[in-house]
Design a binder for these strands. Structure first.
Lengths: 211, 211
DNA sequence: TGATGTGAAAGCCTTCACAGCT
DNA sequence: AGCTGTGAAGGCTTTCACATCA
């Protein structure tokens, strides 16, 4: 069975909603309620879950802690991932201090090439030279947050891949070239800003649109 | 004609590639070359452009500055957008100092509710109280970068909408509820991190996948 | 009875082949 | 001759209706 990649993004949303429901002390929910909170249809919720299994009770609904546990399992959040930050500029430093990584993600390395920055204390550690990647990554760090300037992103990605990184969260506004077994997720706020620009100017773009 | 929303994201990519080509002094290009750089097919490039018009020359290709100008026009980057940042924590402050907004986007306001932060100088301005949104937004600010904590995002979004904001770039990990005429783009690095977690654990997820 | 789980239909996006220009 | 532009085919994702089961 083929799972649409958009479904994975929605599972993340459902999980967040379940955590909110749990915080509110709500124990039982339904595809209807999840759908409303996630702004999708109930059909979509049930189909997304059905790609991975059956987690509800017919005629009743879903038990919040059960579905939450299952989603965490599906998404791989029931284990601990080692992270590193590559590029300790403004964004990298802000991320190093970010308190919201949760149980599943742990910052374990901070890298740059600027001698000014190396040795500086950030977040829970110390900035090291990029050359140390091959020593620090294997067995300890699976995912890199890539926060270097645009021009340096591809070079840094190459070093990360050579060091054995398993996935890259790319904040630079470029399309990275990496082996297909290394997944890349892009976090591109400038692209988002530009899409907004387009959508504001084309409010009816979802309807007819002939030039 | 219906334009797929993914096409808009790709246009942003094509524009960046054109800017790089221009910086390298390359004057002419082709759907083939753009496709390679963007990691899509040449069919896709031509189809994406065809939604908006005909910008190339058959038998020849595209002229870099021409296509660049046309894409900037389509995306609404040939005008200046006023931005504000709502939530002057670590991320908001990093964005206030960001030098890469370019010609088309200008930071014109910085807001928070924390008395500690109000009056502080950031980037090109001073932090003001959120209550001033209705005074500052109309006619000057079209897009808000929403960088408040998760719990406060919906409330802040409501204030922005009431003040007449035209679009929201949401950095908080929540699904915002806004009137459908106000577009929202999400910049959600935690979701990206979670998708990476899934993709690393499911390298063959694109193929068969039975539970 | 009532909400889930799912095969099938509908709809949308991508791929393709080739017509159309220069 | 060659690359763009595009209608149509193909494939994937979403929607739907209903069978299923507590």
């Amino acid at each position: 069975m083929k799972v649409p990649s958009a479904a994975i993004s929605r599972l993340v949303t459902y999980l967040r909603i379940l955590e909110e429901l749990e915080a509110k002390g709500i124990h039982r929910t339904s595809s209807e309620q999840l759908a409303e909170e996630a702004q999708v249809t109930a059909f979509q919720v049930r189909k997304d879950l059905s790609y991975f299994g059956s987690y509800g009770t017919r005629g009743v609904g879903y038990t919040v802690p059960v579905l939450k546990r299952e989603l965490r399992h599906i998404l791989g959040l029931n284990r601990k991932w080692g992270l590193c930050i590559v590029g300790m500029g403004r964004l990298g430093s802000a991320l190093a201090d970010y308190p919201g990584f949760g149980e599943s993600f742990e910052l374990r390395g901070f890298f740059d090439i600027d001698p000014e920055k190396i040795g500086r204390k950030v977040g829970s550690g110390v900035v090291e030279h990029l050359d140390l990647l091959p020593v620090r990554v294997p067995g300890r760090i699976e995912i890199a947050l890539l926060t270097v300037p645009r021009e340096e992103a591809q070079g840094a990605a190459d070093l990360l891949v050579a060091a054995g990184i398993k996935g890259i969260l790319n904040f630079a506004p470029v399309v990275l070239e990496v082996p297909k077994e290394v997944p890349v997720e892009n976090v591109d706020f400038l692209a988002g800003l530009t899409r907004l620009s387009f959508f504001i100017l084309n409010p009816k773009w979802r309807e007819e649109m002939m030039e």
